[in-house]
Simulated scan of single mutants.
Amino acid sequence: MTFNFLSPVSDEILAHNELLSPQALGKKLKIHSNKNGIPDLDNVKIAIIGVLENRNDVNYMGSDVQLDTIRKVFYDLFPGNWHTTMADLGDIRKGDSVEDTYFALRTTISILLEKKIIPVILGGSQDLTYPNYRAYDGILPMVNIVNVDSNFDLGDSALPIKNNSYLGKIILEQPYNLFNYSTVGYQTYFNSQEEIDLMEKLHFEAYRLGEVSKSINLVEPVMRDAHIVSVDLKSVKASELSSKQKYSPNGLDGKEICAIARYAGISNKVSSFGVYEYQHSKEDHITAMLVAQILWYFIEGVNCRVNEDPLNDDINYQKFNVLIDDDELIFYKSIKTGRWWIEIPFLSELNNKLKKHTLLPCMHEDYKEATQGKIPERWYKAYRKNSF
């Protein structure tokens, strides 16, 4: 299997990299270059891919995607106490059509997933989440997506796919692999009531900006259950970004978006991570620096992963049974990390999507509320989806 669709990192960035400290991130990466070609991917855990595609942006006016500034500032950073080997595989350029770009990205991600390498995608418009999702066909039977965004991106599935309407295509196109979709940081005034009602009807999860800002740790269990994480930079408030990138005066701040990225990295399930809607700006590099720091925190999280499986480990977990009316809720707490899960039962009489008892990540607050007679909303939604 080869990576025929990837163009090497530019000579300008490689020349800049030569001037960096030996301890800088750029010196720790395996880099796709004109001179040496695709690097050896043995032992590589994380691979960065740029995608220079934005033609399905609803505001597309012929501008090109440029990612060199992100690479330059990312290479300048210093790694943490990391043990993972990383690569920068360069860019997927625009194909003759957007569908050609989708095919190239889907194929590339599929190869990386089969090699147990986490692709980190830099875009480009957020509709690239669609080929990212389709790359899991034949790899996972059911996929959970978390979208960090001010919008749900549902749109009208009858219309051509755009960066604000790719979810409809994900939901309605066969094969039906989507199990759960969560939006983190949505802002109500950017979403119609019909879309909000549809998210509720589909038992998808939606966390308002105010909820997330008030308690950032509620994002952790959502990320712990995700396979794909897609970050739209429009979720970040304008004061944190360069003038070309500004979208809304309200949004996540720099610390919050980096904390969310770290939660995504810590999750053992997250196997692909993308940051989209980057708008190159010559007047300052602040957005590029923020994207570089988002990547840094995601990689930091990956390096802090702890494998945990409460269902197959009786020693390192505490089990709690809570009765609410006719339901028995079973919680597990990790002695090692303090993380919580709640069990979703297998309904043998139904042809459901979950084929065995499965665990849903949750918070200590969910357990405390259950002891007071309140069923956790995440459990209810997962149970309902399991009942279809």
Rank of each mutant, 00 (worst) to 15 (best):
K333D: 06
F273S: 08
I266D: 02
I139Y: 10
F152S: 11
V291Q: 02
S165Q: 09
L77V: 06
L113M: 06
T108E: 14
K353Q: 10
T69V: 08
L252Q: 12
S192E: 02
A206S: 15
D137H: 13
I266V: 05
M86S: 08
L295S: 01
P131C: 00
H357Y: 07
G37Q: 00
G338K: 08
L41V: 03
A288I: 02
K353F: 14
N4E: 13
F103H: 15
D88W: 11
E211F: 07
G185Q: 04
I145Y: 12
H285S: 02
W340H: 09
K28L: 05
V73L: 11
I139V: 09
I170H: 12
I118W: 15
V229M: 14
K381V: 01
K214A: 02
D197Y: 04
T84V: 08
I330Q: 00
Y383W: 01
Q372H: 15
N164G: 10
A288Q: 04
T69N: 13
F179V: 03
I109Q: 15
P8D: 08
V229H: 13
I31R: 01
C304M: 15
A158Q: 12
A158T: 10
S157A: 08
K336N: 14
L29C: 05
V146F: 06
I109K: 15
E300I: 04
E343P: 01
V44I: 01
A87C: 13
Q293V: 01
M199G: 15
Y247P: 09
E211I: 00
Q187V: 05
L350I: 13
Y297D: 04
L233A: 02
K214G: 04
W82N: 09
A264V: 02
Y297R: 06
L233C: 04
E99I: 08
N81Q: 11
